[in-house]
């Protein structure tokens, strides 16, 4: 699914869009999302809800779905980063130099595997359902783009800088800690954002393996043929995804090392 955003959001420097934004630009997204929420609320209040629609569209059910969605996103993103970043560091050490282009090509093509296929395969092949299965599926899919991001980030660090570090008498480990990792921070921050966006999107699909989230609302609307319920579920999913991306963008701007 969505999940779509494999390391796509990293090229601000080349496109010439300044990393720091003006205050007014920071306000656009919250205002747009606020208006969208308000419009959704007004739209639903104007409808005459029948008993089926009321069963899905009440505060308790919606809050639970949103909360489950946030938990799924947070846990899977954390695990993704814990696996993908160390693996990315490992795969950019000198001993992999010869095979690295092949690794990158394989990872790039692997991104085309549909998330839904991974999730459904866990369900049909291993009868693995629920929250744990959803986390496994989300992490499996999100690892690839974050790994690619980390590798690209570490590789773009100038060799001359590393050479200088070695020349100053630093060990390989010190060079990694003091030079490579700090210089690769912007790319890794982008990776965290990518993982969040992918996971919040894929989490909408885990309803198909009984793991809850906002997808529950959408599917409830689809199976009972209630358009209001479908729209509320889909709109809340979109708003949550945009909100999480926005917050991740703020954190990215705050944490970016000053010297870069």
């Amino acid at each position: 699914m969505s999940t779509q955003a494999p390391h796509l959001k990293t090229a601000n420097q080349e496109t010439g869009v300044a990393g720091s934004r003006g205050l007014s630009q920071y306000l656009v997204m919250p205002v747009v999302l606020g208006i969208a929420l308000l419009a959704l609320y007004v739209y639903v209040s104007l409808q005459e809800l029948d008993s089926i629609e009321e069963r899905s569209l009440n505060a308790a059910r919606l809050t639970r779905a949103v909360w489950e969605h946030i938990q799924l996103t947070a846990v899977s993103t954390l695990l993704t980063l814990l696996i993908a970043i160390p693996l990315g560091i490992l795969l950019t050490r000198p001993f992999t130099r010869r095979i690295r282009p092949y690794i990158v090509t394989v990872l790039t093509v692997l991104q085309a595997v549909p998330t839904i296929a991974i999730l459904v395969l866990l369900a049909v092949a291993f009868l693995f359902l629920g929250f744990a299965a959803a986390i496994v599926g989300l992490v499996l899919y999100a690892i690839v783009p974050v790994l690619l991001n980390t590798m690209v980030g570490l590789e773009q660090v100038d060799d001359a800088v590393l050479e200088a570090g070695r020349g100053m008498g630093m060990s390989r480990t010190t060079v990694l800690q003091k030079i490579e990792l700090p210089l690769a921070i912007p790319v890794m921050l982008a990776g965290i954002r990518t993982a969040l966006v992918i996971n919040v999107g894929t989490a909408a699909l885990v309803t198909y393996i009984n793991a809850g989230g906002l997808g529950d609302i959408i599917v409830a609307g689809l199976s009972t043929n209630r358009i209001v319920v479908q729209i509320v579920g889909a709109a809340l999913t979109a708003i949550l995804a945009l909100l999480i991306d926005y917050i991740a963008g703020l954190i990215e701007d705050l944490l970016r090392p000053r010297g870069l």
């Binding site: 779509q4 894929t202 609307g221 999913t237 979109a238």
Partner: peptide, 9 residues
């Protein structure tokens, strides 16, 4: 950023 499941619906 909009999840595709949501956009399709």
């Amino acid at each position: 950023t909009i999840p595709s499941f949501a956009l399709f619906i």
